[in-house]
Nucleic acid binder design. Structure first.
Length: 214
DNA sequence: CTACCGATATTCT
DNA sequence: GAATATCGGTAGA
């Protein structure tokens, strides 16, 4: 069980080394756990500590990049450390961080976070939500941080950007990271490319795709 | 807790 | 037309 105080404590934010995202998507997805994503979109600043991720690669039928480079999936094919935001089910946005070298279509989906700054602003964006659920799930996380598709393709490692990913000095212990099958995917549902921090209440409940196969 | 369902836009067949 | 990297509601165990 990861102790709760460590999830909320904040040290000095340091810029990330882009090379940590140069890794293959599953390794990059593990490395993103524990990092802090900050949004200064609109008139509020909201930060979350990432506690759940999923890896998507080019040779993977569940990945948006598997059917080639398109204008929407372009950020997945660019250099590591850029945002890829997609719109799905007619109403939800989801946020990814590109990984792997320039030219390869891969990214880490940010599935859940603990709000460590700007709880009040997040509550305004997600009225009626219990605090635990403010960023529990990829579309909820995007909503809490006011991320929409216009924020796709941004460099998250630019310390002056409105959307930025950083390390505040806290890192999860290797023995607190758990892996399992990805949530809601129809193809490739047996690949254990979902990663989360053990025992953290803000991790989203696992949902199988209704017609999951392979 | 699990299971189902409807809402809804973009992309693919 | 059909499918979808989801969510929030309701119903039931």
């Amino acid at each position: 069980m990861t102790d709760r105080p460590s999830l909320r404590a904040r040290g000095q934010l340091r810029p990330l080394d882009r090379s940590i995202l140069l890794a293959e998507a599953p390794a990059a997805a593990e490395r993103v756990l524990g990092l802090v994503l900050t949004s200064s979109i609109g008139d509020a600043t909201v930060s979350v500590r990432i506690v759940e991720t999923e890896a998507y690669r080019q040779d993977d039928p569940a990945s948006h990049s598997s059917r080639g480079r398109t204008p929407t999936t372009e950020p997945m094919f660019g250099p590591p450390g850029f945002s890829y935001v997609y719109f799905t089910y007619g109403m939800h946005h989801c946020m990814n961080v590109s990984c792997e070298p320039d030219g390869i279509g891969a990214a880490v989906l940010l599935r859940a976070g603990v709000v460590v700054e700007g709880v009040e602003a997040a509550q305004v964006r997600r009225p009626g939500s219990p605090q635990r659920d403010l960023a529990r799930g990829p579309a909820r996380l995007a909503a809490a941080l006011a991320i929409e598709r216009s924020w796709s393709g941004r460099d998250l490692l630019d310390p002056a950007g409105a959307l930025r990913l950083a390390d505040d000095g806290w890192r999860p212990g290797a023995d607190t990271i758990v892996a399992g099958p990805r949530t809601g995917v129809r193809h490739g549902s047996r690949t254990p490319w979902r990663f989360w921090l053990d025992g953290v209440a803000e991790v989203s409940p696992h949902r199988r795709h209704a017609k999951a196969q392979r």
